[in-house]
Write a protein that binds this DNA or RNA. Sequence first.
DNA 1: AACTGTTCTTAACATAAGTCAATCATTTCC
DNA 2: GGAAATGATTGACTTATGTTAAGAACAGTT
Lengths: 198, 198
Amino acid sequence: MECTNFQEYLKSNVGFSNSQFRELLPYLELEEIPKGKIIESKVGYDGNLFFVDKGLLRFYSVDVMGKERILQFAPENWFIGDRSNLQAMDANSPLYAYNIDAIEDSIVVRLTKDFGEKISKIAPQFTAINERLLQNHIVHLQHRINLLIGSSVRERYEDFVKMYPNLLQRVPQWMIASYLGVTPEGLSRVRHNIAKGE
Amino acid sequence: MECTNFQEYLKSNVGFSNSQFRELLPYLELEEIPKGKIIESKVGYDGNLFFVDKGLLRFYSVDVMGKERILQFAPENWFIGDRSNLQAMDANSPLYAYNIDAIEDSIVVRLTKDFGEKISKIAPQFTAINERLLQNHIVHLQHRINLLIGSSVRERYEDFVKMYPNLLQRVPQWMIASYLGVTPEGLSRVRHNIAKGE
DNA sequence: AACTGTTCTTAACATAAGTCAATCATTTCC
DNA sequence: GGAAATGATTGACTTATGTTAAGAACAGTT
């Protein structure tokens, strides 16, 4: 099992050389996630962050009624993870269980705390890049909130199509509906209107 | 004009001593923002991040129809800023202009790039703390998205009341409505139902 | 105190989206 | 290949929320 995409990512974004990557290799935990399988979070690792080397994952919550709400899709070269540390998950709010599972057969790199410390030593510029990554994520989430609080389902769907045309092919429609905050029937109707109305 | 809250914040969260803070002082830009005034973003500073030392600010977008959508409130000891760098604001998406203005007379600390570099030298642990801060922000935004895509206005309002009971007193209701993604009339109705239905 | 502009509430009505149920299409699995 | 599960569409009906408009409460100003 290889992680060519991760190596490529580090090369082009962090400026990793092949030898630097070889130095990092022992700290990498690769995991194969077959379609439908939930990634188990390991206790002791804070954060449980993953790099998707191949495939497609989703991050979602399940409420008390069993309804799923999809918070994020992660295709190749994306990071995904439940960032809520245990401290935040106090006894008062066991309202939502967050899960990550595979929409397609996937391969992920598990990024442990050890890994974070190691890579910062090998390539100190990683810290700054990581910060930029987090900032981008925040901008991205804000954009989504902006649409959710002020735009119609149709606008949100059209934004999704523009932003992730490739996911459109790979993600079942009912999951896109969940991501957009609409029922599958609702999204179907919106698509119908777009098709005939234009 | 002083920034006692910021000093206190650095002391308790970053472990700053008074002398360390004195070393940092020359790099701090304090600004007084009277109620209603928009913070001008300065070109050349990337990010325009602020620490709210006193008062209350809001971060919001304005769409083509002139409608405001409130993305964040920031009372004392919170950070607020437009993190979208110019690169992300490309010509294809001049859809939303983001603004920050003051809901109450406020005092903010403008955190420039210079400041970031300086503080990292004075207190290296700041980097890690900053990362945790960003992570928390992400968790927070995810929680909000979770509510927006799957909960009713009533549930969102009750969550807001639980999370920010103090803001309830300080923020006009129509702004809370905007934050929750509902019209002022809609929120008024929901509050009415809560009052009589319980 | 009267004036002006906000903010909040209330009501009647309109509409987008949810729910339920049936049908059809597609994939998966013996 | 057929059966069974899953996914998408469509229609009838319901409901939550938006829209418009009016008035009430309140704040700030002269």
